[in-house]
């Protein structure tokens, strides 16, 4: 009866089957709800998460989540990409696992940016960076393939689909020693260095943008979202760290003061290096160099 042997399933499929057997909600729901380990949950997110627990059926949940934020849902088409399922929801918007159709068929991660951005400007900014991005060729950097605008006018980015744990989670799960953490961090630095040599700044280096998987028993980090942060960052006049509903956009804990400062537009490679410094601190000390709540309360504005 079963067409596919269970042994051939990917871990996420096994996890979902298991959740049916244990009566738990589908883990893809949990992925949608997952928040950055260092990001405090806002009341709104908490309420949404608790509300979503009421929906046990995956399709119901996907519908509900999609309608909550007015997003596309699995099964629909964006350009030449067919959305397969929700990978999750982050500060910028929804991320889907999608299949690229046409001559090249491949699974990709498709990130639809939340409403409120000037799509034309975002895409234009991405286009100017596109040539440079194409020069990035490093095993530690996930490729950004494409960008476009959905029918409802929101920008989206198409990226290499990367699996793995955020670097901090990986280190803890695998109980890496200080030396192993440093070696892993060194690999991340080399990848960032490669991009800097090509004139590309990431602008949003943080644990959830560095995914680590095991390759040949060795941890292999991959940085995602290169080029995306710059494209969606807004010019000075429109610049705000908060979206219309007062949700924080981005992760200021890892931002350099010049970047977090509302007036700062002169970002260079040093901003990424600052973020790497915070990351190194977290990897070695297990906590942020500052208290997150105090920080978000305005520390970075007081000390630009």
């Amino acid at each position: 009866m079963r067409k596919k042997p269970i042994f051939s399933l990917d871990p996420d499929q096994l996890e979902r089957l298991l959740s049916v057997g244990t009566g738990d909600p589908d883990p893809t729901e949990e992925q949608e709800q997952q928040t950055d380990v260092n990001k405090p949950e806002t009341d709104r997110e908490g309420a949404a998460r608790r509300g979503q627990h009421l929906h046990r059926e995956r399709d119901l949940s996907a519908n509900a989540t999609a309608s909550l934020v007015g997003m596309e849902r699995p099964g629909s088409q964006i350009g030449r990409y067919k959305l397969l399922r929700v990978l999750g929801e982050g500060g910028m918007g929804m991320v889907y696992l999608a299949e690229q159709e046409g001559q090249i068929r491949r699974k990709v991660a498709l990130k639809v940016i939340k409403p409120g951005m000037d799509s034309k400007r975002v895409i234009a900014r991405f286009e100017t960076e596109r040539q440079a991005l194409a020069l990035l060729d490093h095993p530690g950097i996930a490729q950004v393939y494409d960008a476009g605008t959905t029918e409802t006018g929101r920008p989206y980015f198409v990226m290499e689909h990367v699996r793995g744990l955020p670097i901090t989670g990986y280190c803890d799960r695998h109980k890496l020693t200080v030396e192993e953490r440093l070696r892993l961090f060194q690999q991340v630095c080399l990848a960032v260095h490669h991009a800097h040599q090509k004139g590309i700044i990431h602008r949003d280096i943080k644990p959830s943008n560095i995914l680590v998987s095991a390759e040949n028993d060795q941890p292999a980090p991959k940085i995602i979202d290169f080029g995306v942060a710059k494209a969606i960052s807004q010019p000075l006049t429109e610049r705000t760290l908060f979206t219309e509903d007062s949700q924080l956009l981005g992760t200021p804990e890892y931002m350099s003061p010049e970047q977090a400062d509302m007036a700062g537009e002169d970002i260079d490679t040093r901003s990424d290096i600052y973020s790497l410094g915070v990351l190194l601190y977290v990897l070695l000390a297990g906590i942020l160099p500052y208290d997150s709540q105090t920080f978000r309360g305005g520390w970075f504005r007081a000390y630009p």
């Binding site: 996420d12 298991l18 949990e30 982050g90 991320v95 699996r163 744990l165 959830s208």
Partner: peptide, 17 residues
């Protein structure tokens, strides 16, 4: 045991933006 088994599955984290 159930909790332990659930920990076999790392979370896919590309969604964090």
């Amino acid at each position: 045991e159930l909790e332990e088994i659930k920990r076999f599955f790392p979370k896919i984290a590309q969604e964090n933006g």
